[in-house]
Design a protein around this nucleic acid. Sequence first.
DNA 1: AGGCAGCCTTGACCTGGATCAAGGCGCGCC
DNA 2: GGCGCGCCTTGATCCAGGTCAAGGCTGCCT
Lengths: 227, 227
Amino acid sequence: MSADAKVLTELDRHYLFAALSDAQRDELLTHTHTREFKSGQLLFSQNDPAQAFFLLRRGDVKLYRVSAEGQEKIMRLIRPGMSFAESVMFMDTPRYPVHAEGVRAGTLLAIDSDAYLNILQASFATCRTVMAKMTQRIQAHWDEIESLTLQNSRYRVVHYLLGLVPEGTTGTTEITLPSRKSLIASQLAVTPETLSRTLHALGQEGLITVQDYAVSIPDIGALRRLQ
Amino acid sequence: MSADAKVLTELDRHYLFAALSDAQRDELLTHTHTREFKSGQLLFSQNDPAQAFFLLRRGDVKLYRVSAEGQEKIMRLIRPGMSFAESVMFMDTPRYPVHAEGVRAGTLLAIDSDAYLNILQASFATCRTVMAKMTQRIQAHWDEIESLTLQNSRYRVVHYLLGLVPEGTTGTTEITLPSRKSLIASQLAVTPETLSRTLHALGQEGLITVQDYAVSIPDIGALRRLQ
DNA sequence: AGGCAGCCTTGACCTGGATCAAGGCGCGCC
DNA sequence: GGCGCGCCTTGATCCAGGTCAAGGCTGCCT
């Protein structure tokens, strides 16, 4: 399979493109370019004017904010196949609402916002898909706010682990943490120390065993009951 | 002005309707009904199937969630002229993501989701407006998550107060709290006790004076510098 | 090999904000 | 008028989780 054909199938798997016709998609590709990035490289900063949104092909990217005191909070961790900054294109004066930085080197597609908007204009079905997706994002935010304000750190960690388990799994499983523990801690709005202690405590109680990035859960039901 | 004409001007002031033609709006009104509610009355519950979204005309409504332990967190406080649950209509299986309850008795318009969707289908301009609005909502959520996780309670209170001051104001101002302090506390994810103490402390420092619902700020600049 | 740089872990300590408890104040109602 | 009920305030206490500090482990570079 050629590199180009690979890009095409990757695109089609994504909701923003799946709804497009071949002609529309090809048109969009003429307004798209590939960009490589290294670990630690800043892709864009909060408040930068935005002309493009992105689809991650390889590597990991973090979207984060920094408080006045220099504390960093990771808002989302982007993994291959995920898009980001796509909702920004609808703003009147598009500016990125977060910083984006490479966590593990990779490549991404930068898609021109205006080109996509033009396509949307032609297809209500696509509009609907996009709006539905934005709604899901809003939903996810409600959920996150709830869990950050209503629940303690142990609950958040358990909730996060269960989120890594595929749907419908029961009994025993093995999961792999998708990133460094310190990044996960930041997403959960706890310090690395607290995450470490919480995982340790869950281990003591026989609910999980942690070995670097591998977490095995002998009884998912028991963990779910903590939620 | 007749009651009906009043409804019309109220509608037109809202982004979801401002973009509609008179004909479209009239069509929509045939799928709209008015509902009265009392203080404490439940309007809908989390996970209720949703066929309508709402525009508040009079009174106040809180959107909230309840944790497993029964703690309540107010996600948004809806005031007259604001719409809510409008993003839900784009979900595949529309369900309200929060509880809604009257805080002060009033009336609201319930607008049929399908009717609105049909209109959207006919107008890309309207689609764009709606998408832009949804983007703003997403933005606001990022901001809220940031302030809830990155900042302490004093900062959140100051931030909230400054949000009540009209844009561009300098020097001295007087603002009115939009609701009971306990509701504000819940929105800021602090206890009423903490809010009370924080306001008191800010008063001690000469930054504000609080008299029931009236807050006067002798020097907005000084308060902004705390942010 | 040795050294250094990132991460993670562990321990000791501290503190912001929650919780619990006790009034105070204003208001509607009998 | 006086009683009860909401809401707010104030004080005392507690604890989850943050901060600070000290290693340990791993992998990379020279």
